[in-house]
Amino acid sequence: MTKNLCLFDLDHTLLPLDSDHTWGEFVIRQGWVDAESYRAGNNAFYAKYQAGTLDIHEYIAYCTAPWRDRSAAELAAAHDRFMNEDILPAIHPVAVDLVRKHQAQGDLVALVTATNEFVTGPIAKAFGIDHLLAVNLERDASGKVTGRIAGTPSFREGKVTRTAEWLTGMGLSYESFGRIHMYSDSANDLPLMEQATDPVATNPAPSLETIARERGWPILKLFP
């Protein structure tokens, strides 16, 4: 029997926060940047994301600048602190249960996020999700992050492209599945939600909630 496909957005969908923006606040706590100027920039990019006007390439150059020259050991230690201080305390059992429900049904489950793979790799593992489609960071010959994006960013229409590429690599396509669930909070994800047979507006922002009500999509509120 053909498996069903289940795709999860991450920020404000499975997590009650934005991991990208929260990482920016963590970078400030690390003392890697000037707090006032970096916070202003981080907040401005976040506002553009919420408004649907973010230039993802410009943002990746900005948000990787404070750490891309740091050693792998320093970054690994910092990410461990970030997970322990910011992410693990924010993971709600109800979100984990939703992931487990789809896994128990035999669904092919993936996390599809516009946050970069450096930030989200450990978060996907914390949720027990094996397949992560995140913004891939370009690296030079020495493995150093350049501040540019490798390939198509998993953002807006790019999420449709990246998911299709991932499925093709397994000899599959969107048409391989009887049902496709897509959980997201953001209207930025409308292109991917429109590929789904079962789009679910999850903790939706007002713009997505309006669209979901107009289209008769279910609305799921995981968090208070």
Rank of each mutant, 00 (worst) to 15 (best):
S154W: 09
E165D: 15
G178K: 11
R139Q: 13
Y174P: 04
Y183N: 02
D140M: 00
G171I: 02
A141P: 10
M170S: 12
T146G: 02
A150T: 09
D189C: 03
G169R: 09
R162W: 03
A164E: 14
R156I: 11
A187S: 12
A141D: 12
V145C: 07
L167F: 08
V145G: 02
S184C: 02
W166Q: 04
L167M: 07
I149V: 12
R162F: 09
G178H: 08
K144H: 03
T152Q: 15
A164H: 11
A141Y: 07
T163I: 05
G169V: 04
N136V: 15
S173D: 11
L172D: 01
K159W: 04
H181M: 10
S186A: 13
L172K: 00
A164K: 13
E157S: 07
E157Y: 08
R179H: 15
K144N: 01
I149P: 03
R162P: 08
A150P: 09
S186L: 09
S154I: 10
M170E: 11
G147Q: 00
T152M: 15
V145F: 09
T168E: 15
K159E: 00
L137Y: 03
H181A: 14
M182C: 15
V135A: 00
T163C: 00
M170C: 11
S142A: 15
K159R: 03
T168R: 14
N188Q: 08
E165S: 12
S142I: 15
F177L: 01
G151P: 07
G147S: 06
E157T: 06
G158Q: 01
S176N: 05
R162G: 05
L167C: 09
G151E: 05
T152Y: 07
S176F: 06
S184G: 02
A141K: 11
K144Y: 00
A164N: 11
G158K: 08
P191H: 05
G147D: 04
E165I: 12
G158M: 05
S173M: 01
R179K: 15
